[in-house]
């Protein structure tokens, strides 16, 4: 007690000063709207930083729980997705055509095996005869053509990729309708060659190349790629380098197109 009194006596000026100064600041912060706002803002800015750090640390400690929750959620979503995909798989969805008889039917499939680095590339689909696929059906992606089915087992099919030196496809320049034959030269998985376009035809780099309906495999007007370069090849024809729209390295979900009038069209 005596120490306390001594302390108070020794520092009484400082204490009075601090009390009065505190009173002054109290009046300052409560009596003036501007100062009040500034002080509240400053204090909030100070505590905000600390609170953010605390909250960061807290989320870090909760990461385990969050991970478990996400994993559970993933499983649920994947199950739902699987159910939906499996439902869809068995159904050929059709294109409504009221004037003519329907010609093409569409079905989805997944690529389970694929290659781009050989001279004769094939990919495997996870559907076969049981799901209604058969030889000579067209395989496309959302971007453009991918290949043609060449063999079917019960539940799997093998398709010849565009990146196969045996692959031939009837293709045309969209802007003027001149058609030629699309082949792959075996060099680059993102480029193919369009030949047999006569030299009097005018077109430019970037023009769209699309399918014709002549082969009775692909429907008319499916995107193949764009002109990236062309040169005159000896005789009267151009040799056009086509930049393929489909990225064969990340091929996954594809659409299989069946032509119901194929036999009729062929004969």
């Amino acid at each position: 007690m005596r120490n306390l009194l001594n302390f108070l006596a020794k520092y009484n000026n400082l204490i009075i000063f601090l009390v009065l100064e505190g009173l002054g600041f109290y009046l300052l912060s409560t009596g003036n709207g501007y100062h009040n706002t500034r002080i509240v803002k400053g204090v909030r800015g100070l505590t905000n930083g600390i609170e953010r750090k605390i909250s960061n640390a807290r989320t870090y400690f909760h990461l385990r729980d969050i991970n478990q929750k996400l994993a559970r959620e993933n499983i649920t979503v994947r199950n739902n997705f699987e159910r939906l995909v499996k439902n869809e798989e068995l159904v050929f969805f059709s294109v409504l055509d009221t004037v003519h008889q329907q010609q093409y039917t569409y079905s989805s499939a997944e690529i389970v095996n694929n290659s781009v680095n050989r001279q004769k590339n094939f990919f495997t689909l996870n559907k076969g005869k049981m799901q209604g696929l058969s030889v000579d059906m067209a395989v496309t992606t959302n971007d453009g053509v991918a290949g043609v089915i060449v063999g079917c087992s019960r539940n799997y099919s093998v398709a010849m990729s565009v990146l196969n030196s045996d692959f031939r496809l009837s293709a045309r320049i969209k802007s003027n309708g001149y058609f030629g034959s699309l082949t792959w030269d075996g060099k680059d998985y993102s480029h193919a060659t369009l030949s047999e376009i006569p030299q009097h035809v005018t077109f430019g780099i970037g023009d769209t190349i699309e399918t014709t309906g002549f082969s009775a495999v692909f429907p008319e007007g499916i995107m193949i790629g764009t002109v990236s370069d062309f040169e005159k090849s000896g005789s009267d024809f151009y040799k056009i380098i086509v930049s393929l729209k489909t990225d064969f390295k990340k091929l996954h979900f594809v659409t299989v197109i069946a032509n119901m009038k194929r036999t009729e069209q062929r004969t």
């Binding site: 000063f17 002054g24 009046l27 300052l28 009596g31 003036n32």
Partner: peptide
């Protein structure tokens, strides 16, 4: 201006 001059003069 409550507090302003008080703080300064103290």
């Amino acid at each position: 201006t409550p507090g302003m001059h008080s703080s300064a003069t103290v």
